[in-house]
Write a protein that binds this DNA or RNA. Structure first.
Length: 284
DNA sequence: CACCATGTTCCTTG
DNA sequence: CCAAGGAACATGGT
C-alpha cells in the first residue's frame, strides 16, 4: 500500500496505538524482511524495549524505542515494499498467512504483514540518509528541484521515481503529478523550463497533500483489521466521500476519456513501469 | 497460460 | 565513474 501519503497516514494512525507499549516477545516468520539485521540481533534488542515515537521519512517509517538501562534510543526502520501493512491485533487473534514479523505487547500484538516480502523491518536505518528532500517541507525548493532536474537526461516520469531527487513519490503519484502539471512524461528532465519545474513541484505537493487528506478523513481501521483494505488506491471504503474513488485522475485509466479534455488516456512503459498520460493535455 | 501489480537493488551494457 | 535498461525478489489477481 505504499507511497508517501499512505505511509504518512499509517504513521499517524499507528503512532498513538503503539506509543508507550513494551515489546514482550518478537516473532519473525520471514527472515528476509530483516535484511541485513539478523534474527538473533532483532530479538535481543527489541525484547523489553518500549515504543516512543514513530515518524515518516519518504516511504520509510522510523520507530524510536527506549531500551531499559540504555541512554541512547534504539532506531528501527520499516518499509512496506509493494504489499506491506502494519496494524495491531488482539493477542489471541489468528495471524494472516503472510505475517512477517509479530511483536507481542501482552493483550495486543503488532503485525507486519507483507504478501510479497519486498518490505523491510530492520535495525539498519542507513537507507534514509540517501533520501532527497521531503516534498511537503520547505527544503523542497524550486532551486534545488530545478538544479537536480538539469543534471538528468532521463525521462521526467522516470526521474520522479528517484528517491534522491525527492523522497516519497512512487509510480502512481508520478503520473498524477505530471497530469496535473500538464507535462509529458517523456520529456527529458533537463529540458523542463523553469515555469514547468515550478508547476511540477506544486503539482507534486498538491497531489500528495490531497491524498493524505483523503486518507486522514476516510474511516480506516488499524485495530483488529477485518476487511482487507489495501488502504487507498483502488479501494472504496464504506461511507467514503465520492472524491475518494475519483482521486486518481490519470493512473490506471488507459482507454478511458481524459477527465479534462475527453481524449483517450494512454498507457506506455518507461523503465519497465506503467505510465499513464493524456496525449492532448500532456503533449509537451 | 499470459500479463499485470503501490518498490528497491543488483547486474550488465555502453 | 556515470547513465540507462533490465532482471530479480515473491505472491496474487484478472
Amino acid at each position: 500500500m505504499p507511497e508517501l501519503p499512505e505511509v504518512e497516514v499509517l504513521a499517524r494512525h499507528l503512532a498513538p496505538l503503539i506509543r508507550g507499549k513494551t515489546i514482550r516477545d518478537v516473532t519473525v516468520r520471514r527472515e528476509r524482511v530483516l535484511r541485513p539485521t539478523s534474527l538473533r540481533e532483532l530479538g535481543l534488542k527489541l525484547t523489553g524495549a518500549k515504543f516512543l515515537q514513530l515518524r515518516r521519512r519518504g516511504k520509510y517509517l522510523l520507530f524510536t524505542l527506549r531500551v531499559p538501562k540504555q541512554k541512547a534510543p534504539l532506531r528501527l526502520l520499516g518499509h512496506l515494499g509493494m504489499t506491506g501493512k502494519m496494524y495491531l491485533l488482539a493477542a489471541d487473534a489468528p495471524l494472516p498467512k503472510h505475517a512477517a514479523v509479530v511483536l507481542g505487547f501482552g493483550k495486543t500484538k503488532f503485525v507486519f504483514e507483507d504478501t510479497r516480502y519486498f518490505g523491510r523491518f530492520t535495525l539498519d536505518t542507513s537507507a534514509v540518509e540517501k533520501l532527497g528532500p521531503e516534498p511537503l517541507e520547505k527544503e523542497f525548493t524550486v532551486a534545488v528541484f530545478a538544479a537536480a532536474l538539469k543534471k538528468s537526461s532521463q525521462a521526467i516520469k522516470v526521474k520522479l521515481l528517484d528517491q534522491e531527487l525527492v523522497a516519497g513519490v512512487g509510480n502512481i503519484y508520478a503520473s498524477e503529478a505530471l497530469f496535473r502539471a500538464g507535462i509529458s512524461p517523456k520529456r527529458p528532465a533537463r529540458t523542463l523550463k523553469l515555469g514547468e519545474v515550478k508547476r511540477l513541484r506544486q503539482s507534486i505537493r498538491a497531489v500528495l497533500a490531497e491524498a493524505i487528506r483523503c486518507g486522514s478523513t476516510v474511516p480506516l481501521n488499524f485495530m483488529g483489521i477485518g476487511e482487507r483494505d489495501g488502504l487507498f488506491y483502488f479501494g472504496s471504503a464504506v461511507g467514503a466521500p465520492d472524491f475518494y474513488t475519483e482521486r486518481l485522475r490519470i493512473y490506471d485509466r488507459a482507454g478511458k476519456p481524459c477527465s479534462k479534455c475527453g481524449v483517450v488516456v494512454r498507457r506506455i512503459v518507461q523503465a519497465a513501469r506503467s505510465t499513464f498520460y493524456c496525449p492532448k493535455c500532456q503533449s509537451r
